[in-house]
């Protein structure tokens, strides 16, 4: 069994054991301890704090704080475990108040975005690798610009510009090359927009002479490369975008959690 699979099974097993233990403890003690909810709340808060520490680890790469992969694995499995802790803290009920409802929603969004991010991080890189080609995200605008200039030179410049190609370029290609296109089709792995464009290019061929056809071939290649660039843009953007939900809401959640602790102790005064 290889390492990743071993990690997966070990992590899942430990998660299962921890969850079962937590639920057993819940069943045994939830009625015995008058301040049970306070205790589970602290455990949950500490767990969430430890999860958030992963961000700190990422900011301190120069300290010997262990391998980020280990942290990520712990983050993932401990994250799943907090779901159990969260349900236990809520005593398997839906929260009723406005503030507590907000808190629960924040937790759900943070956890949900985390799970979504985990899935994306496992699925999208594979697709990028399968598609082939590699590009650094920050370089994409420059590359797109270069492609556009190449295409413009092919279609509009040259010694004998072809009016047919120029017209087609202005009508169809200039918009396509101007910016990232077809985000959703790329994310859903659909080649329909590319194929439509390619078949339009192919349709154009019968109106062209030999030298114009050579230009068309080069344009087609540019279109393919632009499509590849768009594919990378769509997938790499998605790989980064989920953090736009996960991270800001984590801070929100932490702030609200601290307020929750203050309110609970100020108002309940030790009552159940």
């Amino acid at each position: 069994m290889n390492r990743f699979r071993r990690q997966f099974f070990l992590g899942s097993f430990l998660l299962l054991v921890a969850s079962v233990l937590a639920i057993m403890i819940h069943c045994r003690w939830s009625r015995q301890l008058p301040h049970y909810a306070y205790l589970t709340g602290w455990v949950l808060l500490v767990a969430m704090f430890l999860l958030a520490l992963y961000n700190a680890r990422k900011r301190l790469p120069f300290l010997p704080l262990g391998h980020s992969e280990t942290w990520a694995q712990l983050h993932i499995y401990a994250g799943f475990f907090t779901v159990v802790l969260f349900l236990i803290h809520l005593n398997f009920r839906l929260p009723t108040g406005w503030f507590e409802g907000t808190l629960a929603w924040l937790y759900a969004l943070v956890t949900g975005s985390g799970i979504a991010g985990l899935l994306l991080s496992r699925v999208l890189p594979r697709r990028l690798a399968t598609r082939g080609g590699e590009v650094i995200y920050e370089k994409i605008p420059a590359l797109r610009h270069a492609l556009r200039e190449t295409a413009e030179a092919l279609a509009l410049g040259g010694e004998t510009p072809s009016p047919t190609i120029a017209e087609f370029y202005v009508r169809q290609l200039s918009g396509f090359l101007a910016g990232p296109r077809n985000f959703w089709p790329h994310l859903l792995d659909s080649r329909r927009p590319l194929n439509a464009l390619l078949s339009e290019l192919e349709d154009l061929r019968r109106f062209l002479n030999e030298s114009e056809q050579a230009t068309l071939d080069k344009l087609t290649q540019v279109v393919r490369q632009k499509d590849g660039l768009d594919y990378h843009h769509a997938l790499q953007t998605t790989l980064k975008l989920w953090l736009f939900v996960h991270l800001p809401l984590t801070y929100s959640l932490m702030i609200c959690s601290v307020l929750h602790v203050v309110l609970v102790f100020a108002f309940a005064g030790g009552a159940r």
């Binding site: 082939g132 590009v135 270069a146 990378h232």
Partner: peptide, 10 residues
């Protein structure tokens, strides 16, 4: 030009 993507040019 048969690459999937344009050469990055660093």
């Amino acid at each position: 030009m048969s690459e999937q993507l344009p050469a990055p040019g660093f």
